[in-house]
């Protein structure tokens, strides 16, 4: 592997997970980050669901992007590029995909459905998933690259979520002053966590 490829790979993996962490550096997917981080168990479930959905949807949209949206077609002697439709198409594809995954899970793996079930509909309209997909298109990544990037981004999201939920479990035992209870202290904690993640900047 050449040095450049290695660096590229590093950016797709470590970079996606830590340096440009979806939640703590890009500030995407804040809603589930705050919403389902009360308990470690649900956070784990949510992380798993995000990893599955993000990777799958990135793989499929990357196929659409690389085979259709990216290309310029010559029809009637006119150059036509449907790239401007990408947001619409991605949303439709992601939503449909999540629906199908949900149904399939319920059928074939009830325990997994029980664990992930409630979270799947939440992810449908999650900006983190769309963000990952869009970032792939903006950076003009290939199918494999997109999938790797999304997988590690989702892993980073999961990491932040798990960290955060364990912190919140501890905060539940703390005597937080009343004005700061609940969402306020959660946001402060998230802020300090984001501050810590700044330390990774410059890694790649």
């Amino acid at each position: 592997m050449t040095q450049e490829a290695m660096l590229n790979m590093l950016e797709l993996t470590v970079g996606a997970m830590l340096v440009y962490n979806f939640v703590l550096a890009r500030f995407l997917g804040i809603c589930p980050f705050l919403g389902v981080s009360r308990k470690l168990d649900t956070a784990l479930g949510m992380s798993a669901a995000v990893i599955v959905v993000m990777t799958l949807s990135s793989a499929i949209t990357a196929v659409i992007y690389n085979l259709a949206l990216k290309k310029t077609f010559l029809i009637d002697g006119k150059e036509i590029n449907l790239g401007f439709l990408q947001v619409l198409i991605y949303i439709a594809v992601i939503a449909a995909l999540v629906q199908m995954v949900e149904v399939l899970l319920q059928k074939f793996s009830p325990p997994l459905y029980k664990a992930l079930g409630i979270f799947l509909p939440l992810i449908t309209t999650n900006c983190a998933v769309l963000g990952a997909v869009m970032l792939n298109s903006v950076n003009d990544r290939g199918i494999l690259e997109s999938t790797i990037f999304s997988f590690f981004s989702a892993l980073g999201f999961g990491l932040a979520l798990v960290l955060f939920s364990s912190l919140r479990e501890r905060l539940e035992l703390a005597t937080v002053p009343r004005p700061f209870q609940g969402m306020a202290i959660a946001l402060i904690t998230a802020g300090i966590l984001a501050m810590a993640f700044v330390g990774f900047s410059g890694l790649c």
Partner: peptide
């Protein structure tokens, strides 16, 4: 903000 000594993560 976390509740003083002993509470801060």
């Amino acid at each position: 903000v976390f509740g003083g000594l002993g509470q801060n993560p």
